[in-house]
Design a protein around this nucleic acid. Structure first.
Length: 738
DNA sequence: GAGCACTGC
């Protein structure tokens, strides 16, 4: 159907639900009538009894009252910005409204709605499938990594993660399957959403038939409206009020020197003096949270023994992402009961990281305590280091935290900073992720997407040129881009792997070293959270268990060993538990490994191992393959104090205490740079300087290498005859005895 | 002798 041709009408007979509907010219009264119809508008089958009950609840959502206005704006514009506060119903309703207008099922198209998180995509899709009275995975589905819950040809409304849509765009830059794309939670400014906004802005010009809706929180709307300006006219705004309860905000008179101490004091003050209702306290990390929970419990016990009649019982529950799901569930437990009938009410206190700001909603919270800090990722392109820093939150973030107190009834938020600091010191918005990240991955994706000039790409917020330069430099050294910045065949293949470029490179070259099976495992293990468990009261036991699995040549090899042992023990959860390993993380590694293996097969990359053919060369070959990806993350030992210097960037670093090397080798590659009390390198493997010179000659070109001890050491290595891998093993053993 | 804010492919 051409856009200016005659539009087809659907449902030719008058008694059918979509009678009189014309795509993209649909009005609210038509839709409301169709919703009331005995037959399902999209499947033409009778509704189940629950449909009507759910419909009545939907009608009470604020967004429902503005359906007329929505269709008016949607029909007249290609791109709209929508603002809907919590409880407006935008995420569930707007995509359905769009479906009634686009009628995607009649023209083989889909409506997509992106979410920053997997759980959200899944749970919203389930809810909407119920509302539309269809089975999940049929007309309504979702698509997330490892799980495609859609049926080609049937699904016309698809919830998906933003990253997933970006992946699709890499193979279909015009996103032709979609009639409308909705970017939800755009204010969170994830890397994927930011890149998608740039792509969609230019795609809108090529595809006049594509409609785009940007959904965001109030504060950001104007920025998006301006970004999506057509001619001189900013994108129109469609605004829907939320449905939350008022939250009273309190500030401190003076700045608090110690926010943790102040937080504990405030929580106990609320417990003693305020009405019934649970408390949510925001802190920055695991250790701080566990510590604070202990202190709160001690103080609460004290209070209770002093004054048992006026202070109720209290439970204190930690919440952060690395907690096992079962323990995360505890936040939904009810507050402890009164000790005596008529006695003071019990109270639940949840002490949480930012995970409770966006990802998890706890009902029944009436009091929020906000010290005003969170750990945030920062990137320093000069030394190519991404690290986490405790930093002040933004006003938008503070507002979001306060809102958590008003979900079930009017609440109170105690900010542990002054009102003046809130007004003057806090930034309006948290810096978008694109300004705080290493962009190697993103740049490779953009080049694959056909973006020629990365510096002049139309970003919502442009990253620092130096960050882009660092990314281009890395990709050039990895041979993913040629010297003119064009994508190479290797780079094109690398972009298909859901991995950092270093890891993808390693994987692709691994057959040359006859160890692709092993590198596949190592890459999978590097892609998942830490597998080592270390419970507070069993540290010694956990360390001893780790020691038994450690390979002294390098942490990468230890990871390989852990996975292989897990496999040899039939993926047994009890085996994992007995060895202080996270069964959940290991299962994830297995899942990632299978996905990567499928991509390898698609590209005909050989899956080989020489573990049994030539065990002496086995580890040496793996270490050489590692060098092919990580030759830019090398450190050289300087002096005898355990200090290392990173090559070229000259950062003083030490081996992380979790490192399993039994000696301090002269040269190591590392996976991660950790910035805490000291500079550490984590996940480290012993390598030989000859490998660096042979496998990464452009990077280790001594004629352009900065002068210094590192260069001299490389020059010495160059003069030495190359020792075979077998010799290498023997030399190592000798060293260990000494 | 020390940590893993949170996501995502």
């Amino acid at each position: 159907m051409s856009s200016n041709g005659k539009r087809k009408q659907f449902d030719a007979t008058e008694n059918q639900p979509l009678y009189g509907f014309m795509p993209r010219m649909v009005k609210a009264d038509q839709v409301q009538k169709a919703m009331e119809h005995d037959l399902n508008a999209f499947t033409k089958t009778p509704h189940t009894p629950q449909y009507r009950r759910i419909l009545e609840a939907r009608k009470k959502l604020p967004v429902f009252a503005q359906m007329t206005e929505f269709y008016d704006v949607f029909t007249k514009n290609q791109i709209i910005v929508m603002v809907g506060e919590t409880g407006s119903g935008k995420t569930t309703q707007i995509p359905q409204f769009v479906a009634y207008s686009d009628l995607p099922h009649t023209r083989g198209k889909l409506v997509a709605c992106t979410q920053p998180r997997r759980v959200a995509a899944m749970s919203v899709a389930k809810r909407v499938a119920d509302e539309m009275d269809v089975p999940l995975g049929k007309q309504v589905g979702y698509s997330i990594r490892f799980e495609d819950m859609t049926e080609p040809g049937t699904t016309f409304l698809k919830y998906m993660t933003d990253g997933m849509l970006l992946r699709e765009a890499m193979n279909d830059p015009d996103l032709n399957r979609y009639s409308t794309i909705i970017l939800d939670e755009a204010h969170e400014r994830t890397l994927a959403t930011d890149i998608l906004m740039g792509l969609l802005k230019s795609l809108a010009k090529r595809r006049q038939d594509l409609k785009i809706i940007i959904m965001s929180a109030t504060l950001d709307a104007l920025k998006f409206q301006k970004y999506f300006t057509v001619g001189d006219t900013p994108a129109p705004l469609f605004k829907v009020p939320g449905r939350t309860h008022p939250v009273e905000i309190f500030y401190t008179q003076d700045p608090e020197p110690d926010y943790v101490e102040a937080a504990i004091r405030t929580v106990l003050m609320i417990h003693r003096a305020e009405d019934e209702g649970d408390i949510l306290l925001f802190l920055t990390g695991e250790e701080e949270i566990e510590d604070t929970c202990r202190k709160i419990k001690l103080e609460a016990d004290d209070l209770m023994s002093q004054d048992p009649d006026s202070v109720g019982p209290l439970s204190c529950i930690p919440l952060y992402s690395s907690l096992p799901p079962q323990q995360q569930q505890r936040i939904f437990d009810p507050a402890p009961p009164r000790r005596t009938p008529g006695g003071p009410a019990g109270r639940k206190i949840v002490v949480s990281t930012n995970i409770a700001e966006t990802s998890l909603t706890i009902d029944g919270i009436v009091y929020v305590v906000d010290p005003g800090f969170s750990k945030q990722k920062v990137y320093n392109p000069r030394i190519r280091v991404e690290s986490l820093l405790v930093s002040p939150i933004s006003k938008a973030s503070a507002q979001q935290r306060a809102g958590r107190a008003g979900r079930t009834r009017p609440g109170k938020c105690f900010r542990l900073y002054t009102e003046k600091d809130f007004m003057k010191e806090l930034e309006e918005q948290t810096h978008p992720e694109i300004l705080r990240s290493n962009l190697a991955n993103t740049v490779l994706e953009l080049v694959k997407l056909g973006v020629k000039d990365l510096v002049r790409f139309d970003y919502v917020d442009a990253p620092a040129p130096e960050t882009l330069m660092r990314a281009l430099e890395l990709l050039n050294y990895l041979a993913a881009l040629d010297d003119d910045g064009n994508l190479t065949a290797l780079g094109s293949m690398m972009s298909e792997f859901p991995l950092d470029p270093q890891l993808a490179k390693m994987l692709i070259v691994s057959p040359e070293f006859k160890c692709s099976q092993e590198i596949l495992t190592i890459v999978a293990m590097l892609s998942i959270p830490n597998v080592w468990l270390r419970p507070n009261n069993q540290r010694k036991e956990a360390d001893a268990a780790k020691q038994l699995l450690t390979v002294p040549d390098g942490d990468h090899l230890t990871m390989l060993n852990v996975y292989n042992q897990y496999k040899q023990n039939q993926y047994d959860k009890n085996w994992a538990w007995n060895n202080y390993l996270s069964a959940r993380a290991l299962a994830q590694a297995d899942n990632v490994r299978a996905q990567l293996e499928r991509i390898m097969e698609r590209f005909d990359i050989d899956l080989v191992s020489m573990e049994y053919q030539d065990p002496t060369k086995h580890y040496a070959n793996i270490r050489q393959a590692l060098v092919c990806g990580f030759f830019m993350q090398v450190a050289h030992k300087e002096g005898e104090k355990g200090n290392y210097l990173t090559v070229k960037d000259n950062q003083v670093v030490a081996l992380h205490p979790s490192c399993g090397l039994d000696t301090q080798p002269e040269w190591v590659i590392f996976n991660e740079f950790v910035l805490t009390t000291r500079h550490y390198i984590r996940t480290v493997t012993d390598v030989r300087p000859q490998w660096l010179l042979e496998l990464a000659p452009q990077y280790f070109d001594l004629s352009t290498f900065p002068d210094g001890e590192t260069k001299r050491a490389l020059q010495r290595a160059l003069k030495k005859p190359r020792a075979g891998p077998a010799d290498d093993q023997r030399a190592k053993k000798k060293k260990r005895v000494v």
